[in-house]
């Protein structure tokens, strides 16, 4: 019984935390500073990118992941992302890609307002946590175009 209460309290606090977004500033098509003030961990970022239920990235993108079968072909390859885009430009695309292209199919990874008909279990939650987004950014920045090296 007490355990159930404790669990409920934990769930409620998680929920309460999730309801506010860390403020960020968009300047010149980029969000220059880390959402958490901390640098990301590229190794953790890679894990999130290839996890289909977590990052969802490979449902649409392909990339330099030889061990991953069935990568999507709806979006550009992630290979060379770090050569094409700055860290801040990647961050804006992760946070809310519609700010770059209104018609994009890229889901917003850090947005809660302005979304319609969100399923109850995903309401008031962002697709990824801020530090997870920083981890993914750190990994994508490391994907340099081989030809340009």
């Amino acid at each position: 019984m007490w355990r159930a209460f404790a669990l409920l309290a934990v769930l409620m606090s998680v929920d309460a935390q999730a309801q506010t977004l860390v403020p960020y500033q968009i300047e010149n098509g980029a969000i220059a500073t880390s959402l958490t003030g901390q640098p990301g961990d590229p190794a953790k970022g890679r894990t999130i990118v290839v996890e289909r239920q977590k990052g969802l990235c490979l449902l649409c993108h392909s990339g330099p992941f030889p061990e991953e079968r069935f990568q999507g072909d709806l979006a550009p390859s992630l290979a060379g992302t770090g050569s094409r885009l700055s860290e801040g430009e990647i961050r804006l695309r992760m946070v809310d890609s519609t700010k770059v292209n209104e018609k994009t199919i890229m889901p917003p990874y850090y947005k809660m307002d302005g979304l319609g008909r969100v399923a109850a279990s995903y309401k008031a939650k962002t697709l990824l946590e801020p530090q997870e987004i920083e981890d993914v950014i750190a990994f994508l920045v490391s994907l340099k175009d081989e030809a340009q090296k």
Binding site: L56, T98, P107, L115, G116, Y122, K125
Partner: peptide, 16 residues
């Protein structure tokens, strides 16, 4: 557009 992933039916089934 609907849901946390913010897709419309048309974005997948017409455009893609």
């Amino acid at each position: 557009r609907m849901g946390q992933l913010n897709f419309s039916c048309a974005q997948c089934h017409d455009d893609n």
